[in-house]
Design a protein around this nucleic acid. Structure first.
Lengths: 110, 110
DNA sequence: GGGATTAGAACTACTATGTAGGACTAATGG
DNA sequence: CCATTAGTCCTACATAGTAGTTCTAATCCC
């Protein structure tokens, strides 16, 4: 299953997790996505996708310790697996490849 | 319906059409995708997606003249609409935005 | 110390997108 | 006029995207 084609939203979630590093869990991932894209996914949308990706081995999760806060329930921290990292890189590469030589009107190069 | 979030494959198809310019129709689009990505979509996969995108106003199609070839059936040429172009550009931008500041292991920059 | 309150996760249900394979169609050529 | 061929379209199903709601476990306050 090394060549699972990543879905659009899966990629967005993976990248958000990547950015967050050690502090990636449901709530922060959602915030990160909202901050860096035009999306604002519902909790359900995120957790469902997270669960599916874990099934496919793209991410791994571990339950953290409860924080000393009101409602400080234990967070489920998420981390990208090597296989997940590979999948993002691969997706990026083929995307980049398709873009090669194209200049899209209305899109700034960078 | 200006903010339709483009799917992964939709984007690939759109970009292929863009590259092909005036000569974009079923067969050539399929070849273009096969040549520039790791995918090799079946005819059905492509035509279905094309039909859906036309419904959403992302592409427009017109029937060409039959070519004087054996089996030279009339081709259905496809063109990206302004709204389609906008959708790709938007998708690109938010993708780029999410990538900002990230350096992915195993992915060459460029 | 037990119910109100709250952060956070998980379930259910549904829609949309991705995908294949084969049927259909319209043209030529012998 | 039927075999052959380029090309399109139909049918059916798998997978990804999405929302809303409910469940859970922890503090806070009286």
């Amino acid at each position: 299953m090394a060549d699972t084609p990543l879905g659009e939203f899966e990629q967005v979630v993976l990248l958000a997790i990547f950015r967050l590093g050690e502090n990636a869990y449901g709530v922060t991932i959602r915030e990160e996505i909202a901050a860096h894209t035009d999306r604002d996914p519902s909790p359900g949308a995120l957790y469902t996708t997270l669960a599916r990706m874990e099934e496919k081995g793209l991410v791994k999760s571990r339950l953290g310790d409860p924080t000393p806060d009101r409602g400080g329930r234990a967070k489920r921290f998420v981390k990208i697996t090597p296989s997940g990292l590979d999948a993002v890189a691969r997706a990026q590469r083929s995307y980049q490849n398709l873009l090669r030589g194209i200049s899209l009107p209305g899109l700034a190069h960078g």
